[in-house]
Computed example of a mutant assay.
Amino acid sequence: MLPAFPRFNTRLGAAIAALALAGCASHPAVVPSAQWPAQLESALPTDVLLLGEQHDAPDHQRLQRDTVQWLAARGRLAAVVLEMAERGHSTAALARDATEAQVQSALQWNDAAWPWSAYGPVTMAAVRAGVPVLGGNLPRSAMAAATQETRWDNHLAAPARQQLLDALQDGHCGLLPATRLPAMARVQIARDASMALTAQEAVRPGQTVLLVAGGEHVLRHRGIPTHWPTNLTSKVASALTDKAQAATTTGADIVVTTAPLPPHDACEVLRLPN
């Protein structure tokens, strides 16, 4: 069975995000993970820092925790916005010494979709620093309505929209009926809009909002930044496990390269005969 909403095949989604729009934007700075978060200084000041990840790469979640700690230690972290929790949920009312159970309850954490073992460290790093963690994703209860929101069909320029449709198809192993793609694209764009609004509301003068999401969501030309007003400043950092991809990545200002993951065909199970 295919997923009910577009959480990408992480390997394919990362590859497509990396190779998209080649030649249409300047190449980003490429740095190894050992130079992060020291490289953060080059991205500041900015209202929002978007940190894109590959969901199955533990090194990327460690980068997120390190980023939180680096910004918080300098008093520069306004809030952390997570794709992994729904908009409307927040730790703002919790004390720094809140338990992990209290934090998960406040964020209405869905461990089946987003393992707490992966994202707990970055979340708790923010809580311990006294920084609010905000759910940014479109609530699941709003997904069905989003599939009917035709206004999103014209949100992106035609080339970027086609790239999004291609990414959705490839990220689902090429097995989606073409007729499903427009509705899935509306949900994807609505999710980006939800995260963008959450981050925009959290902006504070002299500080930076850290927004953590999958690599496809953070791309400047077709992701979350397309929903912001022109007076909001942002920087996009994408974490990638493939240095070859980094050479052609666009839609990001900085690429952080991490160790390759073991070879794995995430589509294999979907290709097996019933």
Rank of each mutant, 00 (worst) to 15 (best):
A15E: 14
S42I: 01
T91S: 14
Q54Y: 01
V122R: 10
A85F: 02
V103Q: 01
Q108G: 05
H60F: 00
P32E: 10
E83T: 05
G52I: 07
V48I: 15
Q35K: 11
V81N: 02
P37L: 11
G88K: 13
D59M: 05
L44V: 05
V48K: 00
L77R: 11
R65I: 01
Q102R: 05
P32H: 07
A14N: 14
A73C: 03
W114T: 06
A85I: 08
A57K: 06
D97G: 07
L63M: 14
P121C: 09
A22D: 15
T46Y: 04
A101L: 14
R62C: 02
H60P: 08
T46M: 07
A57E: 14
H60S: 10
Q69C: 05
G120R: 10
W70F: 15
Q61S: 11
A34C: 05
Q102L: 09
A93P: 04
A57R: 11
Q102P: 11
P58A: 14
R76Q: 15
E86G: 03
R74A: 09
L40P: 03
V68Q: 02
P58W: 02
A14E: 15
Q61P: 00
H55K: 08
V30C: 04
L77P: 02
W116E: 09
A38M: 08
D111M: 04
T99H: 01
Q108I: 00
Q108S: 10
T99L: 12
D59R: 10
P121L: 10
A43Y: 01
A113D: 14
R74S: 09
R76F: 00
V122D: 02
A73I: 04
P37W: 06
A118R: 13
W36K: 06
R76M: 06
A93W: 04
R62Y: 00
L40E: 06
T123E: 06
A101I: 07
T91N: 03
M84Y: 08
L44E: 12
Q104R: 15
L21Q: 12
S42L: 12
Q104P: 10
D66A: 15
Q35H: 12
T91H: 03
P58K: 13
A73K: 13
P37S: 13
A14V: 00
D66G: 03
P58N: 13
Q64P: 04
S33L: 06
A73W: 10
Y119N: 07
A38L: 13
L49R: 06
E83I: 02
D59P: 10
A34Y: 04
Q102S: 12
M84F: 12
Q54V: 13
A20D: 11
Q102A: 15
A34N: 10
V81F: 02
D56M: 03
A85H: 01
W70P: 03
P37C: 13
H60C: 00
A29V: 15
S90Y: 03
L19G: 12
L51K: 11
P28S: 09
F8T: 00
S117T: 13
L44G: 14
T46Q: 10
W36G: 07
A85R: 02
W36N: 04
A73S: 15
W109P: 07
W109I: 08
S90C: 07
S42N: 12
H55N: 09
L21H: 09
D66M: 14
A101R: 04
A93D: 15
Q39D: 08
A72N: 11
A20N: 07
V80N: 04
